[in-house]
Amino acid sequence: MTALLEARNLNKSFGAVNAAKDINISITDHEIVGIIGANGAGKTTFVNMVTGYMNPTSGQILFSGQDITGREPREITRLGICRSFQVAQVFMTATVFENLMIALGIAESKTLFDGLRRMRRPEVEQKAEAILNRYRISDYRDAIASTLPQGVRKLLDIAMAMVAEPKILLLDEPTSGISVEEKFELMDVVMGALKEEGVTVLFIEHDMEIVERYVSRVIAFYSGEIICDAPPAEALIDPKVKEFVIGEDPGHGEVTAENGHA
């Protein structure tokens, strides 16, 4: 069986710094994978390469067996790989509803001619309302995105990524910038919605409690290399992961992760 997403001998260097060294990953359908690692370990670089924001120095990325290395982000999106961002990338001066309408409008515009159809069609508006409900952000329907609380903006960011109905979704630190109390609430909403849509998920996360709770597989990065690829129960007690990712005192997320790097 071909893997849904496969990275083969992926390398990426920025000058003298190697952000990815011989990365080999194979993801199958319906997996929920957590990517962990200290800051600068190469997690976002990996996501950026898969989604076409940057090209690998060498190596291949395959999606359902098809080589997508070096494609533009928009082509990769159309193929069915979408992503969210560490800092939510939404249209700041538009309302939540308008954000979704634009996203839907683009997703439904496969050709130039499609793009000339009216954006506000009743069936599209219904879809937008459904998404608002699925991600529990209907209360903010008419709020301008720049005024949204951090968590809602993150949800909108993810909801917009899911508009294209991708086969695989890459989440770049969905809980960064979110308070400890709200983290689980946010992740419950996100993971619930994503399960409903049956999408394969890859997410970068610093918080080990979140990782433990939601993922079926953990991939740990350390200075551009994969040091562990195993189910969470196994990965989180792996000595290398403990030393280089979690640090001495697990459970403090980002801070310890930085210490581990230093």
């Binding site: 989604t51 533009e72 982000p73 928009r74 999106t77 159309r78 979408c82 992503r83 961002f85 990338q89 939404v90 249209f91 700041m92 001066t93 538009a94 634009i102 996203a103 683009i106 997703a107 515009s109 793009g115 917009m160 990524a161 508009v163 294209a164």
Partner: peptide, 12 residues
């Protein structure tokens, strides 16, 4: 507002 988002929605 955000060209990065536009690209990642699948349009240039």
């Amino acid at each position: 507002d955000n060209e990065i988002r536009v690209e990642y929605l699948g349009i240039s």
